[in-house]
Design a protein around this nucleic acid. Sequence first.
DNA 1: AGCACGCCGACT
DNA 2: GTCGGCGTGCTC
Length: 739
Amino acid sequence: MTTSLPKVIRVAVPLPLREAFDYLPPPGMDAAAVPIGARVTVRVGRQRLVGLVCEAGVASRVDAARLRPAQACLDEVPLVDAYTLALIRFAADYYHHPIGEVVMNALPGLLREGVGVDAAGIEVWRLAPAVDASHASVTRAARQRALLDYFTTLGADRAHGPEALAGFGDGWRAPLRQLMDKGLVLRERRPCLAASPGGDAWPTLNPAQAEAVAGIWPAEATPVFAAHLLEGVTGSGKTEVYLHLIERALAAGRQALVLVPEIGLTPQLLARFRSRFAVPIAALHSGLGDAERRCAWLTAAAGEAPIVIGTRSAVFTPLPRLGLIVVDEEHDGSFKQQENLRYHARDLAIWRARAQGACVVLGSATPSLETLHHARAGRYGHHRLRRRAGMAKPPALRLLDIRHKRLDAGLSGPMLAAVGERIKAGEQVLLFLNRRGYAPVLICQGCGWLARCPRCDVPMTYHAQARRLRCHHCEYETPLPAACPECKQVDPVPLGQGTERLESILAARFPEVGILRIDRDTTRRRGALAERLEAVHSGDYPLLIGTQMLTKGHHFPSVTLVGVIDADQGLYSVDYRAHERLAQLLVQVAGRAGREEQPGEVLIQTCQPEHPLLITLLRDGYPAAAEVILGERKATGMPPYSHLALLRAEAPGESVPDDFLNAVAGALSPLAGGEVDLLGPVPAPMPRRAGRYRAQLLLRAATRAPLHRLLREGLPRIDALPEARRVRWSLDVDPVDLY
DNA sequence: AGCACGCCGACT
DNA sequence: GTCGGCGTGCTC
């Protein structure tokens, strides 16, 4: 008598477990009949979870006695296609992350929770027929009135989804409900995704653009895997190249995926796509409601949305007919997820394109060094757009030596004079300072005491308007101390510059001039950033002050002068990527200026005017600066000339992370085989944060294979260390910063 | 991650 | 005498 091994389904469950679990098929089903890529509900311990079927009809790896049947199969057909499942598997493998948690990243919330896929559509609202235009029943409620005016202006023929109404601020649902109760507005359901109007004219490409398009996707071609770098200075018309490439992909019957940075997915960009292509376009971004997200995702997965535009996580969207992936601003840090599964969407996009036989285009004015390195080695096609479309001159960059100069709130005489001139000429000025608050330090002049965060050991930032000290690394804040707690001398003084101080100094200096400050403090409220960006174009604010926030994507056509208050932070930093980031930042911030007939000027204050990086960047531009930085990386053996993985650990006890990482180093070094360097453990750049001590261990190897072999063999040993349960630890493969 | 089991301090 | 602290181990 033979007992055949039970055939099971292998299910990725949303738990931090390295392996998928085996289950007997749901009642009444044959294991081999359960669709791979379908969701099932299973019991794990005593909890009920939704998991994803990775394999079906396979022999179990565990004792038959331990097997439980899955409860139910939620999808008749695979929710996740084979390509996407392969991507999920690869990501779990490459980032050494539990597969169930990778699945969590790949699925929209509702589907993750087991909601059905029957496309119920999304809510839309329209004006009821024959509504009295005087709105007699809405007299005093301003928000209802604003909504009703909007509905009336656009007429009863048009229905409006949550996306359109979100422009009315956070609480638009309450006044809308009032309007529905009064019978003025009707609710209905719209099937998932309607086609965009399209219809806009297609401008003729300039020669460089045409050459790039032809080089990346020749007319009438069917796609095969290829990666391309599209290096185009700000304003050179990269988006137009993308649009033409997408047109070719659609003509070949393929889908296009466009990945953009978090702040890059603006209504303007979407409008541009929608006015070009008369097809359904699925937009996946953080502002979507759960139902909308599920809807857009399902439409894409069904192959019914030929174009999908989204941020980082959109790289996981199933696209059965994928032919083209565009990664716009590929150097942008938001493509790297910095928690849980620490994946890089650009890198996964390239893997995915290869696996699915698609073409991938990485676009940037300031490509990452990794991408440049691949392009130089001939692994990626390299296409350049050197000229700004329709504009004569790129902005002129100039260094201002501020050594031994009298500074007024960090502003040198020449900077102030230049600002004054531009304002007098009726032009707009943007001052960039990557530090919010009034001053980064508050110090006692009597004894040198300075206010530190008790949980992070770093100086607290003084916020003048709030009259409080805030830690920028945790939630801690206190009222402004009237006197030094050590020596009792009154009025500790602010030291250094923040955007708030810059604003107050400039307000005193240019009392008649409108100043607009854009940083996290002035844009905390939902919609406030959009309002302020709108205000930039109103002409009421000749002076703009901003942090990092302002350097990305937004176009300020009437800005003719950009002032960089402090370029030196990026020169002194210990992080190996600081120079790359500084070069990208300076070029990107310069790109905000002089987009029209007026040529722009960029003034950069520095104490290191002879620094080779700055000299090269100003004289020869970003590509030359990138060469310099690549040389530094080669000399120090850092990426792209090596491969890194970073183990981070934190715990409330001071020596606990270090003890853990020492144990890790002990467990890993016999496996390292001379091919992987174990650097550390060392304290993290911020050794204490939010009351927890932090340390890290860096793994470095010349090639990927031994590094990943070490991780594959070593992680189970780390899991087994007794020290491991006393710390919170995480692994970051290809870390982009060592914080 | 949950959730149980398990062995040591302050409470009805 | 119990309630509950969180260390340890398991979940197909």
